[in-house]
C-alpha cells in the first residue's frame, strides 16, 4: 500500500538525513520505527505527507507517487494520511470540536469550513470519535485548557476524522509522562485495531515499541538496518541501531523497565 524507494533528503547540502531509504508496508498493522535522535525518523514521516519535500526517490501510496503531486492532488493524498504529532499541533485557541472537525477540511469546501457548517455525518463522526477517546465532556472546551494527554487524544481524533488510509505518528508519547504515555499507546493500538488501520509510528521508547508493535524498523543514519518482528530485536541489534548513542538507549531501557515494575 505504501511503498518508499530510494528516498533521499538533506536540509543542508552534503549532510543527508535520509540516504536511499526503502520501506514497504505489509499486512502487519502497527509498525514502529526506532533509532537514536537524528537518525531521520521524523524526517521520514514528514516526507510521507509532504510537510517536508524529499529530494529524490519515490513514495507511492496505492500506486500514486506523492512526490510528484502538487496543489489539489497533494491535498487529496494528504487527507488520506493521518498524522499525530509529538507536540500535538492543535490550534490552541480553537475548541476541541473545531480541532477535531478540522480533520475534515480536506473534504470540506472553503466557505463551509470558515462558517463551521460541516455536514451532519461529520459532526456525528466527531462526537463518536471524541466518545471513543474519552473526551465527550470537553466538546466545547478550548484546547489550551487541556492537559497533555487530553490534547494528544484530540490529536488522535483529528487524524482519524480524516478517515485516513494510513496513520503516521511522530513520537506521539515523547512529551507525556510515563503513565499517560502508556495510555496513549493503548489508545492508538486499540483504535487502529478496531479500524484495521495501518500505522507507522516513531518511537523513542524501545520497550513501548516491542510491547505494541507488530513490526519494528531500525533506522540509523538515514537507512533501514533492521526490519523484523519484535522478538527478533535482540540486544545485539539494539546496540547496532544505537551505536554511538548507548547512553540514550540505556536511559530509556531503564525508564521502560521502571514502568513495567509499576504496572
Amino acid at each position: 500500500m505504501l511503498k518508499i524507494t530510494n528516498l533521499e533528503k538533506s536540509y543542508t547540502k552534503g549532510a543527508p538525513v535520509l540516504k536511499g531509504l526503502n520501506l514497504t508496508t505489509d499486512e502487519r498493522r502497527l509498525t514502529a520505527i526506532i533509532g537514536s535522535s537524528g537518525a531521520g525518523k521524523s524526517t521520514l514521516l514528514r516526507c510521507i505527507n509532504r510537510l517536508v519535500k524529499a529530494d529524490s526517490g519515490s513514495i507511492e501510496l496505492d500506486g500514486t507517487d506523492i512526490l510528484s503531486l502538487s496543489g489539489r492532488a497533494l491535498q487529496d493524498s494528504r487527507r488520506q494520511i493521518g498524522m499525530i504529532f509529538q507536540a500535538y499541533n492543535l490550534v490552541d485557541r480553537l475548541t476541541v470540536m473545531e480541532n477535531v472537525l478540522s480533520g475534515r477540511l480536506g473534504y470540506t469546501g472553503f466557505f463551509r469550513g470558515v462558517f463551521r457548517k460541516f455536514p451532519q455525518e461529520d459532526v456525528d463522526r466527531a462526537y463518536a470519535l471524541l466518545k471513543r477517546v474519552g473526551l465527550s465532556q470537553y466538546v466545547n472546551k478550548r484546547c489550551d485548557a487541556l492537559s497533555g494527554g487530553e490534547r494528544q487524544r484530540v490529536g488522535c481524533a483529528r487524524a482519524l476524522m480524516q478517515n485516513p488510509r494510513i496513520l503516521l505518528a511522530d513520537e506521539p508519547t515523547a512529551s507525556l509522562d510515563p503513565k499517560t504515555s502508556e495510555r496513549i499507546m493503548e489508545l492508538i493500538a486499540g483504535i487502529t485495531e478496531e479500524l484495521d488501520l495501518p500505522v507507522l509510528i516513531n518511537l523513542h521508547n524501545v520497550p513501548q515499541a516491542t510491547t505494541y508493535a507488530d513490526r519494528i524498523l531500525g533506522l540509523r543514519h538515514g537507512v533501514m538496518i533492521f526490519d523484523g518482528n519484535p522478538d527478533e530485536l535482540t540486544e545485539d541489534w539494539l546496540e547496532q541501531i544505537y551505536a554511538g548513542h548507548e547512553d540514550d538507549l540505556k536511559k530509556q531501557m531503564k525508564v521502560g523497565a521502571a514502568e513495567y515494575d509499576d504496572e
Partner: peptide, 23 residues
C-alpha cells in the same frame, strides 16, 4: 481519566447517534 474505552468501539460507528453542534 480512564483508557477512553467507555464500552463503545469505533466498529459501532456504522449506526451513529445524531448530534447537534454549535460553535
Amino acid at each position: 481519566m480512564s483508557t477512553g474505552n467507555n464500552g463503545t468501539t469505533l466498529t459501532d460507528m456504522a449506526r451513529p447517534d445524531h448530534y447537534q453542534w454549535f460553535r
